[in-house]
Computed example of a mutant assay.
Amino acid sequence: MNWLLVAVGGMIGAPLRYLTDRAVQTRHDSRFPWGTFTVNVVGCLVLGVITGAVTAGAASSHTQLFLGTGLCGALTTYSTFSYETLRLAESGARFSAVANAIGSVAAGLGAAFVGMAAAEALWQ
């Protein structure tokens, strides 16, 4: 049963990542990977909320498997983030590469913290 929750969550998260990435990226006329940045930060926020909800007893471990492991696992993408950062650096956009690396990590950690804090405020 657990594997099915993860699989179904992933089946939702993967196309959601693609569609969100395309929608965000088409609105920006730059080489900076705003679409990947967006899905990764949103995924960190959602995972923070889910983890906080599970910790507070407001959500089940099945919810965590479905939304956290499945949906967020497929929604977010470390490999694409790494590739796009490398591509920026190789093309001479070194400032953008460094900004992407530092900004993505900082924003992701911040989003996860905000998500957990919000869950804690809601359910404790």
Rank of each mutant, 00 (worst) to 15 (best):
S60R: 12
S82T: 13
R31G: 07
A56R: 12
G108L: 05
A53S: 11
G13W: 08
S104M: 06
V42A: 00
W34Y: 12
H28Y: 08
M116N: 14
F66R: 06
A59V: 03
Y78A: 13
W3E: 10
R87P: 07
T51E: 01
I102P: 00
F95I: 10
S60F: 03
V46K: 02
T36Q: 03
E90A: 05
L71S: 03
V41A: 00
L71N: 04
L86Q: 11
L88P: 04
I102V: 15
A106F: 08
T36C: 03
V46M: 04
G68W: 00
L109E: 11
G9P: 08
L122R: 14
I102A: 06
T26G: 05
A117I: 01
L19V: 12
F37S: 00
V41D: 01
R22V: 15
G10I: 09
A112I: 06
G115R: 01
I102H: 01
R87F: 06
V41M: 04
G92F: 02
A59C: 01
Q64L: 13
P15A: 09
E120F: 12
T77I: 04
A53T: 03
V24H: 01
P33S: 07
F113R: 13
R31E: 02
Y78T: 06
I50P: 07
G35R: 06
N100A: 02
M1G: 12
D29I: 02
L67P: 09
Y18N: 09
L16F: 15
R17C: 08
R17A: 04
T63Y: 03
R27A: 15
R22Q: 15
G68F: 09
T69P: 03
A99S: 00
V105K: 07
G57W: 09
S61K: 12
A7Q: 11
A23W: 13
F32Q: 05
I50S: 05
A121K: 12
V49D: 03
A56H: 07
F66N: 06
A118W: 14
A74N: 13
T76S: 15
G115E: 12
R22P: 11
F66H: 04
V98L: 02
T85E: 12
S60G: 10
E84S: 04
V98I: 11
T38L: 03
F37L: 13
Q25F: 05
R87I: 02
S60T: 15
